[in-house]
């Protein structure tokens, strides 16, 4: 098997990935959102935790999808919008690096940043693990679910960021679209719908799939749902970046 093209793509992706990843830490906005995410989730979780007295993270994972609605767009809003605004996109896309490699680099760096945020939240399972017996299987499954859902959110955020030069517009549109995808499967919406439409909506909703993963039920359909939508958004992103080449 010829590994040379793969090696060359990895070499192309690496510097872009690194620059993007480091730039998150140069931006105060990212810090603010991360701090808000951690403080809010910890606060809401622990105020309830001592009331219910149960050593599990079900409550916390219930908060995650809501806060990801804010966190994911905050991570991705700059990604393409800022490059377009400052003109660096012209530099970036005339480097001897393929469009898809740039898109993947941006996706992986934002996913890594999200992973760092999730690592900071590990204080919660560690704390409750000391206080009682917890099922680590369920918690690991919850974190895997959070990463999968995060990947889908981030890929969509990146795609939307590539449509605009304005970070705020990018943030707000991503937030709205993610919110729509999130609520279409909720009970409130379901009560208006019947038959096949209801099951389609429920299938398309990001919330439904997350809930089952968090319960510790690993269904391949849920994983396929997140991975295929992530792949779709990344593919569309590569197309929008390539659209500058349309004749």
């Amino acid at each position: 098997m010829n590994l040379k093209p793969i090696q060359s793509s990895i070499n192309n992706i690496k510097p872009i990935f690194k620059r993007e990843f480091v730039s998150f830490f140069n931006s105060p906005i990212a810090y603010i959102f991360v701090a808000v995410f951690l403080v809010v989730t910890n606060w809401l979780f622990f105020t309830r935790f001592f009331l219910t007295g149960q050593a599990n993270m079900r409550e916390w994972f219930g908060l995650v999808p809501w806060l990801f609605l804010l966190l994911a767009p905050a991570i991705t809003m700059r990604s393409w919008a800022e490059e377009k605004k400052s003109g660096t996109v012209e530099f970036l896309l005339t480097l001897p690096i393929r469009d898809w490699e740039v898109v993947i680099a941006k996706f992986l760096s934002s996913l890594s940043f999200l992973a760092v945020v999730l690592i900071f939240s590990l204080t919660i399972p560690i704390t409750i693990g000391k206080l009682g017996d917890i099922d680590f299987g369920v918690i690991i499954s919850g974190y895997v679910g959070a990463i999968l859902m995060g990947a889908m959110y981030l890929s969509l955020g990146l795609l939307i960021s590539s449509f605009t030069k304005n970070q705020i517009v990018s943030f707000l549109i991503s937030l709205s679209v993610l919110f729509a995808i999130f609520i279409i499967g909720s009970n409130n919406v379901m009560s208006f719908l019947q038959g096949p439409l209801a099951s389609i909506m429920q299938f398309l909703s990001s919330a439904t799939h997350f809930n089952s993963i968090v319960k510790g039920i690993f269904d391949s359909r849920d994983i396929i749902y997140y991975l295929s939508f992530t792949a779709l958004f990344i593919y569309l992103n590569i197309q929008t970046i390539g659209s500058r080449n349309w004749r």
Binding site: N11, K14, R19, S23, N26, S86, T88, E90, F91
Partner: peptide
């Protein structure tokens, strides 16, 4: 390019190193 786009949050040596890496 005309607007001389640079990643302004980087230090000069970081930036040049990044370009050198990206240029393989």
């Amino acid at each position: 390019p005309e607007t001389n786009p640079l990643y302004t949050d980087m230090k000069v040596h970081e930036y040049l190193k990044f370009v050198a890496q990206a240029r393989q």
